[in-house]
């Protein structure tokens, strides 16, 4: 069974060919650098670019895999959540590809895709991770903890109440005068700084809401990054201009350390509560070196797929499609995309 999968939930146009057993035949990712000058992803521009790129990326994924349409047996696409206009381009094209050949179709939840990256067959360096395990997914678009009990689903046991972790990196980078995307730039700057130079609010506390909300939050497995972001703003304001330049590396290191503290605390608490001893990490924030270093000290078995399978990609969507319901032609022709939350029934 050869699966052709499309992912277009944000600003990367992705198409992959994956075998039924989880072998990745091709995994093409076309990143849209067009958003950098806007300091963030612009939905309308993302949707336009997806449409300009989609055929070429499909053709390249087939070519790299050495297969043609005749060999494709299942078509899959991300149905949501994500930017609706972006999702609709990939979903519409994928439905068209499947319909013209009356192939079966699998509509995949994007988050389930991140989880399923761990089920791909990638060779000895990255063994397939069998459930149950805990999965931290942290990117510019989502930050959550998934309790994975089986290959076809997960339970969301913690989620961000405001910004995503990647967004916190981007916004922090902007305050420190770094470009977009900010994560890698902030990490580079932080590498020359002292992570204990500045104090940030303790992990697990929250700036907004009453005392009850604060206690509920502390006891939950949820994330909140808006307080950290506000603190960084105050720290930079307290310094005069030359100081801000002198101490930029210290600010970056302390801020990064606070984000990582928060992510790690929740992972630790979740491992303890669930009794799980294995942790998988996905999403673009998995590229952060500080996070990786400190994850290894967690006392759990930590699995991080190769970076191109952590950031948004279509191989993970194909992987999830292996365990998702398969809709026969013509049942899927009327499928719509969804922007937020869980898949509509």
């Amino acid at each position: 069974m050869t699966i052709l999968a499309v992912e277009s939930s944000c600003d990367d146009t992705c198409v992959a060919v994956v075998d039924e057993d989880g072998q990745v035949r091709s995994n093409v990712i076309s990143s849209q650098r067009a958003h950098d000058r806007f300091g963030g992803v612009v939905p309308e521009i993302a949707a336009r670019h997806h449409l300009e790129l989609i055929d070429v990326v499909v053709a390249r994924a087939l070519e790299e895999a050495g297969v043609d349409f005749d060999q494709v047996e299942l078509v899959a696409a991300t149905q949501g959540p994500g930017l609706i206009g972006a999702l609709l381009v990939g979903l519409s094209a994928a439905k068209g590809i499947a319909a013209a050949r009356e192939l079966p179709f699998a509509a995949v939840d994007h988050i389930q895709g991140h989880v399923a990256a761990n089920f791909l067959k990638l060779g000895p360096a990255h063994p397939v991770l069998e459930p149950p395990f805990l999965c931290l997914i942290a990117s510019g678009g989502h930050t959550l903890l998934a309790h994975v009990r089986e290959r076809h689903g997960f339970e969301r046991i913690g989620t961000t109440l405001d910004d995503a972790a990647g967004e916190a990196f981007d916004k922090g980078a902007r305050m420190l005068g770094l470009g977009y995307p900010g994560g890698p730039a902030l990490e580079r700057l932080a590498s020359g700084g002292d992570p204990e130079a500045f104090e940030f609010p303790a992990s697990g506390s929250r700036s907004r809401g009453g005392r009850g909300a604060t206690r509920d939050f502390a006891q939950s497995l949820d994330f909140s990054f808006s307080g950290l972001k506000t603190s960084l703003l105050y720290r930079t304001r307290e310094l005069d201009k030359p100081e801000r330049t002198d101490r930029a590396a210290d600010l970056a290191a302390s801020y990064q350390s606070a984000i990582v503290d928060h992510l790690l605390l929740r992972c630790e608490q979740a491992l303890e509560r669930t009794g799980l001893d294995r942790l998988a990490v996905g999403g673009g924030v998995a590229a952060n070196g500080e996070l990786r270093r400190r994850l290894s000290a967690l006392g759990a078995q930590v699995h991080v797929p190769p970076m191109e399978l952590c950031t948004d990609n279509a191989a993970m969507i194909a992987s999830a499609a292996r365990y998702a319901p398969r809709l026969a032609y013509p049942e899927y022709l009327g499928l719509d995309a969804y922007a937020t939350g869980e898949r509509p029934l």
């Binding site: 997806h50 449409l51 989609i54 055929d55 499909v58 053709a59 349409f69 609709l88 381009v89 990939g90 519409s92 094209a93 994928a94 439905k95 068209g96 590809i97 499947a98 319909a99 013209a100 050949r101």
Partner: peptide, 9 residues
Amino acid sequence: ATAHGLAQS
């Protein structure tokens, strides 16, 4: 996008 998918396939 639908037309592209249909024609390409």
